[in-house]
Design a protein around this nucleic acid. Structure first.
Lengths: 383, 383
DNA sequence: ATGAAAGCGCTAACAA
DNA sequence: TTGTTAGCGCTTTCAT
């Protein structure tokens, strides 16, 4: 039976409210009383019950973070960024994994709702309608998805897909493939659309294969189909799929990048660990984690419930805004010259091995390769 | 302002207690009333406040899971196993990452304490004393560590280290290295001790290098030292360190396994993705996640607080027990013949490339390679 | 089967 | 500066 505020009050001969103040507003209590209370509390092993406190203040000091798959190396940097940003503001982050299951996702939001001050929904798989409904129960910030006018942190993946396709085309590839990700993924739709239109604009063929589970296993599984497709350049929904493809192709004896070039998306830790090192589009996950926490905590200035309420003036609605983060192509060793190499710009095979391009290539590839933490953000307040 | 139980009561013309029963004990309420209440609740978008409920029942329906580093691929399978096991019993899992920081770790336990029914501490870095203190505030289950007689799920990593060292010795390596992990890690101490004694028993030299951060970066950083050490066989604290070492050695032009053999620990997803594929010791993380949840929920039969208390007989203390899970060496391509190869058993170089050994090798290597989910567990109740 | 009342652990007006 | 009182949203005796 844990010690309560009442036990401490009795033991130190003061009223509960004094004990309460000792912990939540120490400056309002006489230094002497304070230290006496603190001492007895300490000796009794008393800890304020944050849940009970939350019930009345309306603030828990926690934020929830829900991701589709913790095993995807895409998320950990984002999670860690969110955690450190939250910690700076004296918040804690509780993470939950939905296993790519929309139903579990909704359940988890429900379960978390009252134990956190808001939830970061990262790459959610739920239906829009479900999200909108939940948004009325708990402050939500979306990451990688646009839902109504909920606050959102987005990445310009369309631009990333354009860069990737143009990179492949510039290398002389005309038969391209987009390895599609899961249904219901906003990012997947963006990528696919941008890849298709960019390919068309450059007179290249682009087939779409999928949906695929966004995992290495998914990549291995689709390798034979990729080989048989006749495509020489492949863009995958994410690094996991791309790395799986690399493994699968290796198993089939197909050489990368000599026979097929592969581009991933996300620039996860994996991409420099595999051989050949993966050409990929860096998505600013760290900046996203930070930005998402900031948006949530900013709008959290309007606490729900709690006693503070009263007539709080003109209907305080959450500030709806979007933050859009830039993406960057990182050429590495999994892309090389294709069959339609034009005579215009000759680069020795293996040129891509150097991350430091001397030949800047087509305009869209001309990204500063050094600047990896591209946290410059184009914030566009929608109201 | 979210809808409360009172709003629903008023709107459906019944007392709050009836609404309460409709949700927590439906069988005690008249079917007609029930459906009426349910209907109004639904239409008003009412959701029971789990935090408030927990305050009185003493049960939250959540379990906490604290890990040292979410980015370590070692943890996700364990987390997912815990989640699915918990979900089967209608519990939710909240995960938190401590960034390998003991202080953050303690804070997080505090923050979670009252919002969960118990906490799984995975590979904690805290001091024993801190853990024992916290164990008095919230039910704790340890994973990968022994603290007093707290319930624990352990892996027989010592046996794993023995297998690994014997594997290297059998291949003809006599100059070995153990790449040490973080201070304060129970697993690290176990590994180190077992590696040292096994090497000694076989007349091999084994140096210890470290502590190292248990990350790929740590592995890359230590590569030059490893090369210069003169050792030909290396056992690393975990796969991350081993994979980093692989990358570092590759960068230095040192060939694996021709010049140096490397063994990892954990058999993370990474190990089959890198080239050469990593020889490693599989640790049963999935079984561990499941077992930990089971232990926690079993002892949770004794709810803390709540109103139920009363005189509950003979001092119900949490059942203290340990579960010990087996580990298995998985030979892959990062280990090969060493300079002291005896004439006894000749195996062509590159034999290790096949996961299907025809030559079973020394006794300790003779593990069933197919059986990957080694969840057979030796449970030893200590009371 | 339902209502009345007490209270989980805590905070926040308001007095004193 | 401290005590008094009310109550956050909910469950659970105990009556009825």
């Amino acid at each position: 039976m844990p010690t309560t505020i009442r036990d401490v009050a009795r033991a130190s001969g003061v009223h509960v409210s004094t004990v309460s103040r000792t912990f939540s507003a120490p400056h309002l209590v006489n230094p002497e009383t304070r230290s006496r209370v603190l001492a007895t509390a300490e000796s009794m092993g008393y800890r304020p019950n944050r849940a009970a406190r939350a019930l009345i203040t309306g603030r828990t000091g926690n934020v929830g973070l829900i991701v589709a798959d913790i095993a995807n190396p895409y998320f950990p940097p984002m999670i860690k960024a969110a955690e450190s940003q939250a910690r700076q503001r004296d918040y804690h982050v509780f993470v939950a994994d939905t296993d790519e299951d929309p139903v579990v996702e909704e359940e988890l939001v429900q379960a978390m709702a009252k134990q956190v001050d808001g939830i970061l929904l990262c790459s959610p798989r739920m239906a829009n309608s479900a999200i909108e409904r939940l948004a009325r129960e708990v402050p939500l910030v979306m990451v990688n998805r646009v839902v109504a006018d909920l606050p959102a942190v987005l990445m310009d993946v369309a631009q990333g897909a354009r860069s990737a396709i143009e990179h492949l085309v510039a290398l002389g590839h005309r038969d391209l493939l987009y390895l599609s990700g899961p249904r219901g993924s906003w990012t997947n739709r963006e990528l696919r659309r941008a890849a298709l239109s960019t390919a068309r604009a450059h007179g290249a063929r682009l087939d779409v294969v999928g949906p695929n589970p966004p995992t290495t296993t998914g990549g291995v599984a689709v390798a034979a189909r990729v080989r048989d497709s006749g495509a020489t350049g492949v863009l995958a929904y994410n690094d996991l799929l791309a790395v799986g493809l690399l493994t699968g192709l290796h198993g089939l004896g197909v050489r990368v990048p000599e026979e097929i070039s592969v581009v991933g998306i996300d620039d996860t830790a994996l991409s420099t660990l595999v051989r050949p090192a993966l050409t990929t589009v860096a998505t600013p996950t760290v900046a996203a984690g930070r930005a998402a926490v900031d948006m949530l905590l900013r709008q959290d200035l309007h606490p729900r419930g709690g006693r503070t309420s009263a007539a709080d003036g003109p209907e305080t609605r959450p500030t709806s805004a979007q933050v859009i983060l830039q993406t960057t192509l990182i050429p590495r060793d999994s892309t090389g010259p294709g069959p339609h190499r034009t005579a215009v710009r000759r680069t020795p095979p293996g040129r891509q091995r150097s991350a430091d391009l001397t030949d800047p290539g087509p305009a869209d590839e001309r990204q500063p390769p050094a600047q990896r933490d591209n946290s410059r953000l184009a914030s566009s307040a929608k109201e």
